[in-house]
Design a protein around this nucleic acid. Structure first.
Lengths: 177, 177
DNA sequence: GGGTTGTCGTTCAAATCTGAACGACCATCC
DNA sequence: GGATGGTCGTTCAGATTTGAACGACAACCC
């Protein structure tokens, strides 16, 4: 195992800031949604995806992939949302195994009621803080990452070798985060 | 409550990509750390912070703030790490309430052993995917967000009004995520 | 000094997440 | 037609997280 290319100052700053910001933002969002509507963030994301889907319905597995959550977590959350009357389960016509999660009218109006407050958080702490240039840069950056992360394991897709030289491991820096 | 400024196409793309990428990356990291060392990501972050701290020790509350986790979660994780022999608890000299988490030798060498593999994931799925320009843009973007998110609630710090006009709510778009 | 208020870390109950195991169903191939 | 392997969603046990409540100590004010 060769000595890894440690992160240089810029890379380290990027990674650290990304990590902290995403965690902090997640907390804020969770807090706001809980206070405003008793929803968790995953639950909110489920409602959003369903609202956008044709027929306001989606297969469980597809929905789980979209929201980036395990199948079992989705089963759990759909059950919760069903109890709350925001979502219903239907069998998928043509495949007895399939289950469709369907957004109810109550679910849709709940989403419409909650969205503005959620949006405000997203704007206040992220979107509105960035210039148009920064916004675009972040978009392409995140989209690139998402693409690789969603891509099925492919041996030809390897680490970008175009990145510069290997900085020496700083003595004070033991590990990256 | 006035009609909110909905996200335009660029903003929406930014937010969606950020959300998906951060969730997906989190999953990958968790998976890699678990496989390589039986560590969770929060645990790894704790080790990193401790390794960097003077005396390789930190107050519980400060550590919790650093890794962005609740105090109770930190108590739990430090207990786990203590069981694994990677961390020890010490009382803080001069304040009987205080507790110091101290990285043990075993903890340090564990970190040194695990870091390269972790780094590889961070590089492969994020850092190495970005150009130098994108990297810098993301850094300032994330740092701005982090700054606001860490700032104590301050009524004068409000949403940036410099952002353009209010795009009409798209009919197909019900809510942001 | 003594009271008041605040901070520190822990404990607790409840909610949620994950991966593995499972039963049911589908698709394909002979 | 039936075996075989794959996909679907659920169930389950276990781990982890959170906020609220708590006891202990610190800091301050009169």
């Amino acid at each position: 195992m060769t000595d890894p290319r440690w992160l240089d100052a810029t890379e380290m700053a990027a990674w650290r800031a990304f990590l902290s910001a995403s965690h902090l933002l997640e907390r804020r969002i969770e807090e706001q949604l809980k206070a405003a509507a008793g929803l968790t963030h995953p639950q909110y994301e489920i409602l959003v995806r369903l609202a956008e889907a044709p027929g306001r319905r989606m297969r469980m597995t597809e929905l789980a992939r979209g929201v980036v959550v395990s199948k079992s977590a989705l089963t759990y959350q759909i059950t919760q949302l069903e109890k709350a009357g925001l979502v219903e389960r239907t069998t998928y016509p043509g495949d007895e195994r399939g289950v469709l999660a369907v957004l109810t009218e109550a679910g849709l109006s709940c989403l419409e009621r909650v969205a503005p407050g959620h949006l405000e958080v997203v704007r206040a702490f992220l979107i509105d803080r960035l210039s148009r240039t920064e916004l675009r840069a972040m978009t392409t950056a995140m989209q690139k990452a998402e693409a690789v992360l969603r891509a099925p394991a492919d041996p030809t897709t390897r680490t970008n070798p175009a990145t510069s030289t290997n900085p020496a491991k700083p003595t004070t820096q033991v590990a990256p985060t």
